[in-house]
């Protein structure tokens, strides 16, 4: 189950990015993305778990670049969400190897998929809403919010690394 969803999310995420770049008139990047998606799928087949992190980072960078170069934001957003999904499931699949029985696997798979789907859907809707409504902020406000976000993130990560 997890593996199927993982492959679907890789294809969807990278496909969305490729489609966005294709629509914005950058077929070379789109082709590169499709090749990269194929590599990611092969890496998953061969259990190269580290590749998921590279894939995720590539998706983050290319979606930001795509948005900046006026590629359709919706496709870019779908790409980043798909990559996040794939990155999460790749690690989850590795953790599932510790569950030797089918019942143990099933008891873990379903709640995880529900939770990650919820998080991804909510993130998608929030992002899409902010893209559609385009709230206007002055530069001072943007700088303040960015600083606040940076401090907040730093605190959060520090706390998480200490063990919650």
């Amino acid at each position: 189950m997890t593996r199927v969803v993982l492959f679907v999310s890789i294809v969807t995420g990278m496909g969305a990015l490729a489609l966005g770049y294709l629509e914005s008139g950058q077929p070379a990047v789109a082709r590169g993305l499709l090749i990269f998606a194929a590599l990611w799928l092969i890496a998953q087949f061969r259990n190269w778990r580290w590749f998921a992190s590279i894939g995720f980072s590539v998706a983050v960078i290319l979606s930001a670049y795509g948005v900046w170069t006026s590629a359709p934001s919706g496709w870019m957003l779908a790409g980043i969400v798909g990559a996040l999904f794939a990155w999460d499931l790749s690690d989850f699949e590795q953790r599932l190897e510790n569950a030797p029985t089918l019942s143990e696997r099933e008891s873990l798979e379903r709640p995880h998929l529900i939770r990650i789907s919820g998080v991804a859907a909510l993130g998608f809707v929030l992002s899409l809403a902010s893209m559609l409504f385009r709230p206007q902020f002055s530069f001072e406000w943007v700088a303040f919010l960015a600083l606040l976000a940076a401090i907040g993130l730093t605190q959060l990560v520090a706390r998480m690394r200490r063990g919650g």
Binding site: V60, S63, M76, L77, G123, S127, S130, R134
Partner: peptide
């Protein structure tokens, strides 16, 4: 703003 909007799924 659109690039910043991409933050939402990751932050969530």
């Amino acid at each position: 703003g659109d690039v910043l909007a991409l933050l939402a799924p990751l932050a969530l």
